[in-house]
Amino acid sequence: MAANREFLYRRLHSLLGVIPVGLFLIQHLVVNHFATRGPEAFNSAAHFMENLPFRIVLELFVIFIPLYFHAIYGVYIAFTSKNNVSSYGYFRNWMFYLQRISGIITLIFVTWHVWETRIQAGLGNVEVNYALMENILENPFMLVFYIIGVISTTFHFANGLWSFLVSWGITMSPRSQVISTYVTLGVFVLLSYVGIAAILAFAL
């Protein structure tokens, strides 16, 4: 099995990006969307999530362990490639390059976001509610940072879903890969809309 470790890590990296991290991302953006219905709706949804039983176990195994395995191994993958879009400006090569850039941006954004919300709440410094987000997004710099962060995250997820389908041999023919390009583009647009709508609800 030692010789297979790299194959195993790569496939695990691909799998964890979608299950559970991708599913968690969708759930998180959907819960955030309560913000468009006003502070009370958001606060009660956030409260519900906060009071889930076995919260620490769920957070560890559904979010933090898979997320940071995916992130740290992903940084290693990103830095072992030698990007060459200037010589080979094909669409998929650009997507390959943007996947690595968006991965790094997403890691910075998510780490900052976890620090500012979950860790600060854990330390007892803040309470996670509508007012906290309203406060953060009052700062125009943070508003731009959050918008870029969310778009980068949804892009990384949607494009990663495309490569997930190839890496597991689900989409094989060129035609199936073109169709999945359009489907994942749709996923990107829809999730970006859900995420940005919530950010603007806090900010405006």
Binding site: A3, N4, E6, F7, R10, R11, I77, S81, N84, Y88, Y90, R92, N93, M95, F96, Y97, Q99, W162, S163, V166, S167
Partner: peptide
């Protein structure tokens, strides 16, 4: 192919099929 440096290292840039 499943060993070190095997097919899992493909990053789907698809430059190969274009070239």
């Amino acid at each position: 192919l499943m060993g070190e440096g095997g097919l899992a290292e493909c990053g789907n840039s698809q430059n190969c099929v274009q070239s």
